[in-house]
C-alpha cells in the first residue's frame, strides 16, 4: 500500500463540507452582484428593475441562481 494512496483515501473519507462556496455570496458570484448593482443604479422610469434592459437583469439573476 502506498503512503500517497493511504493519505488520499483517509482524506476522502474524512472530507466533510467543502470549504469553498460557489453560492451567490461567494467571490464567483460577486461579479454578477456588482453588475446588478451597476444596472440597478440606472433603471428606466416606472420600469421594474427585473425587466430593465430587455430582461437581461432577470436572466443574469437566474444564471447566478442556477
Amino acid at each position: 500500500m502506498s503512503v500517497e494512496n493511504s493519505t488520499e483515501m483517509r482524506a476522502l473519507i474524512a472530507a466533510g463540507e467543502t470549504s469553498t462556496s460557489f453560492g451567490p455570496g461567494s467571490v464567483r458570484g460577486a461579479g454578477v452582484l456588482l453588475l446588478l448593482a451597476i444596472l440597478s443604479a440606472n433603471p428606466r422610469r416606472n420600469e421594474p428593475i427585473e425587466d430593465a434592459f430587455e430582461g437581461s437583469v432577470q436572466n443574469l439573476t437566474c444564471a447566478a441562481a442556477f
Binding site: G16, E17, T18, P24, S26
Partner: peptide, 10 residues
Amino acid sequence: RSLLRRDLLS
C-alpha cells in the same frame, strides 16, 4: 445551506 453554497456532494 449546502445547496446555497453549491456544495453538491454534501
